[in-house]
């Protein structure tokens, strides 16, 4: 049995150390918002957060996670930048087919946590590992910028309880 902290809850998982986190999330815990794309960390569809960093869950053995906090698309709304990113995504209507978008939102919200006002180059570097076959990249970039503004406005509004 391995204990994993997922979206603020401790989950007891009966799985071998070497099982990738994505398998645990989707097949054992039913958290199917995180998608399987390529299985070799090449497409970004399986992106989740590990202590706030965007990681590819398809190549992350659960034995190497330890006590670090996992956040999936189901829980990202509770993170400071996650709510802004989701709001901006809806406003810009970023999504087309939607398959890659969980991963896109996870990478974007991790970026805004470390870099609240990213430049175009910083967005490119952070989002390069997330592939979208529908080609929503232009809307993704615009949504990240408006999410940054939204987050900044929340900060100045003093709406701190949401962010902490």
């Amino acid at each position: 049995m391995i204990d994993l902290q997922i979206n603020g809850e401790i989950k007891h998982v009966d799985a071998p150390d070497r099982m990738p986190l994505l398998w645990v999330l989707r097949d054992l815990l039913g958290l199917t918002g995180t998608k399987f794309g390529c299985g070799i960390a090449q497409c970004g569809a399986c992106t989740v957060h590990l202590n706030g960093n965007a990681v590819r869950s398809c190549v992350l053995p659960i034995g190497s996670i330890g006590t670090r906090a996992i956040t999936t698309i189901e829980g990202v709304r509770a993170t400071p930048s996650g709510a802004s990113v989701q709001q901006a995504w809806l406003a810009a209507e970023v999504v087309q087919c939607g398959y890659c978008q969980s991963g896109q939102i996870m990478s974007a919200s991790a970026l805004l946590t470390t870099t609240p006002h990213p430049t175009d180059a910083e967005i490119d570097a952070a989002m390069a590992g997330n592939i979208c076959r529908c080609g929503t990249y232009v809307r993704i970039r615009a949504a990240i910028k408006s999410a940054a503004q939204l987050a900044a406005m929340r900060g100045t509004d003093g709406d701190r309880t949401d962010n902490v």
């Binding site: 960390a41 970004g44 992350l60 570097a125 952070a126 390069a128 590992g129």
Partner: peptide, 24 residues
Amino acid sequence: GKAVYAGACASCHGWSGVSPVMAV
């Protein structure tokens, strides 16, 4: 090289060289 690194490597190895994911 940077473009490939950003797309395929950075998510595990990080930009600093110290992996945010795994010590290995």
